[in-house]
């Protein structure tokens, strides 16, 4: 018995990854893990893009993936800098420690 891996499987994997990322952002308290979860979400979208682009036979989806990777790198630089700055204030990267503003 052979198992054919088709676009449906990739899209299903992409949906699972996106869900894992979303749940990670909503439940974890560590800023670095939250950031990793966001990266998982973006990569889930990338997987969906390449799957669709391959299925349609259109190059735009592949190009979009490169752009998303570039933007994610820029976001990583800024995000990690913000996390370093927050660590300097409180000696922790737990987002629960950063709640002086409320209301």
């Amino acid at each position: 018995m052979t198992l054919a891996v088709g676009p449906g499987h990739y899209l299903f994997l992409s949906a699972i990854l996106f869900t894992i990322g979303t749940v990670g952002v909503l439940t974890r308290r560590n800023a670095i893990i939250i950031f990793m979860s966001i990266e998982i979400m973006l990569n889930a979208a990338n997987l969906a893009f390449v799957t669709f682009a391959a299925a349609i036979g259109d190059l735009a989806g592949f190009v979009m993936v490169l752009l998303v990777i570039a933007v994610a790198a820029a976001e990583a630089a800024v995000g990690l800098a913000i996390i370093v700055a927050m660590f300097r204030h409180r000696q922790t990267v737990d987002v629960g420690a950063f709640n002086v503003m409320r209301g």
Binding site: L11, F18, I38, A44, F49
Partner: peptide, 14 residues
């Protein structure tokens, strides 16, 4: 929100 946005674009593109 960017994650949601990009995934939304992927669905529309697909």
């Amino acid at each position: 929100s960017t994650g949601f946005f990009v995934y939304g674009i992927a669905m529309v593109y697909g």
